[in-house]
Design a protein around this nucleic acid. Sequence first.
DNA 1: GGTGAATCTGAAAACTACTATCACTTTCGA
DNA 2: TCGAAAGTGATAGTAGTTTTCAGATTCACC
Lengths: 139, 139
Amino acid sequence: MKIIVTAEARLPKNYALVRDMVHEHGTGRHLTAADVHSFAKQRQPRIGYSTVYRALNRLARLGLVSEVLVPGADVTYYESVAGPHAHFRCAACGRIDDLDYRLPKAAVARIAREHGFEIGDVLVNFTGRCASCREPAGG
Amino acid sequence: MKIIVTAEARLPKNYALVRDMVHEHGTGRHLTAADVHSFAKQRQPRIGYSTVYRALNRLARLGLVSEVLVPGADVTYYESVAGPHAHFRCAACGRIDDLDYRLPKAAVARIAREHGFEIGDVLVNFTGRCASCREPAGG
DNA sequence: GGTGAATCTGAAAACTACTATCACTTTCGA
DNA sequence: TCGAAAGTGATAGTAGTTTTCAGATTCACC
């Protein structure tokens, strides 16, 4: 039985390019697959959508980029890997912000124990209106 | 200026039917629009998808049913309105469970204050494997 | 009741994000 | 160098949801 030590070792050139695009543009920002594709095209004009999607899927599976699944937004966003955090989505302008918040470990452990779950991911999402969108209309 | 007091007052017949279907079948369960449609058809065989979708959208906007937006599941679920709670989605079998958990109010208030957000919804989602799906494969 | 405007309706087409297919090319290990 | 395995881009396909459209229904007002 072989153990793959570095997932990077066998990463195809285009996949590495995609990873770089996410790391360069996606720190604190949230890129759609289309965004990533258009960034990637600046360096590799012939790269296709399919390759970008395939790359993002694999990179996410390998833990080299983070998928950001935002309920209510009907696209998947990508960002560089970071510690666990929450997301805020402004219902008015659609922008998504990172928040430095995570659920208390004890709470997660309790839920897992009580229900017999094995909990992998914990997603915390806030929806509302961001500071800029609140101003004009008042409350 | 007129103020609409009861949102129910002007609810079209089919929309009320859809609401009833969700309330009858969707307490503690999670119905897709297709589920709702097929339940509704048992009472109103000529009702179409469009009407069900339109009804669900409006009912959700009016707060008469709850949309369950589960990241990773690519459908929207609906359930009757209930107090705030979290959802667990089993990545293996796809089932979705209600959990009696909500974020500490103080935490939400702090985030809103710090960022200037007006926070409406708070969504907490756990993903992992449910008790039944853990058994066969072990860990 | 009667009337006209606004709303609702269902079938079907359109939309959108994403995935699968296909034939071709590239990569990699031996 | 060779052959198998993996990657590639164009294109077609998929699925959930939304839009369109012409006809039916409802409602406020008389």
